[in-house]
């Protein structure tokens, strides 16, 4: 296929890498390589001679990839890459989504765009999933704390579960805090005193 590109994905997490590969395949019959090893990264990338390299913006090895975009001496040419920032808006969107894309100089934007769009969408999805996971985790922890605080109040003051919760809520409102924060303070204090 004329539109096929050679794409390198630098990603340690296997699941994530597979997700990216899947979404890129939907945009064409590309030749895709996943590099998970940090060691020998610049050599491996140079050998594959890709058209596009995708790497998570939070990956410290970005600086290693970045090196391939500059010549090592005036006599040399960059190994293969050039950071194509011809479309600044696209680059900005990509970075906000959490992916940086290195594209070989001179490639037509219409060949690259579907690939970058797919990568950006995938990284936005990762970002959303991570946020959701963190929110769920926090909610679970808060629930556990509130349950423990309720239990302590029920035992010490001999009140019902509903009354215990109402007490926590009132205390939180009076202090301008979250119920979970009051519960945490109570649990910590109880641990210190016991």
């Amino acid at each position: 296929m004329a539109n096929a590109l050679t794409i390198v994905i630098v990603e340690q997490d296997k699941e994530r890498a597979l997700g990216i590969v899947d979404s890129l395949h939907e945009t064409g019959d590309h030749k895709i390589h996943v590099l998970a090893e940090e060691s020998g990264l610049s050599r491996s990338v140079a050998q594959l001679n890709p058209d596009v390299v995708l790497i998570d913006v939070t990956n410290p090895s970005r600086d290693t990839i970045e090196q391939l975009t500059t010549a090592s001496s005036p006599m040399d040419r960059p190994v293969a890459f050039f950071v194509d920032r011809s479309d600044a808006q696209m680059t900005k969107t990509a970075i906000e989504a959490g992916v940086s894309a290195y594209v070989v100089d001179g490639l037509q934007m219409d060949r690259i765009k579907p690939v970058l769009d797919a990568a950006i969408a995938r990284f936005q999805l990762f970002h959303r999933m991570r946020t959701e996971l963190e929110t769920t985790k926090r909610a679970l922890e808060e629930r556990k704390l509130i349950d423990r605080a309720k239990g302590m109040l029920m035992k010490v003051r001999g009140i019902s579960e509903d009354e215990a919760y109402a007490l926590l809520r009132k205390s939180a409102m009076d202090q301008g805090k979250k119920v979970a924060d009051v519960a945490e303070a109570l649990v910590t204090a109880a641990e210190l005193l016991s």
């Binding site: 940090e38 020998g40 610049s42 410290p60 290693t64 090592s72 001496s73 006599m75």
Partner: peptide, 25 residues
């Protein structure tokens, strides 16, 4: 010493430097 011939500058994140040396890179 000539850059690119006698010595090669390679970008490596500092926390990975020790590993790169151990791997003889």
């Amino acid at each position: 010493m000539v850059a690119g011939k006698d010595f090669l500058i390679q970008a490596v994140p500092p926390p990975l430097m020790a590993a790169a040396i151990e791997n003889n890179e």
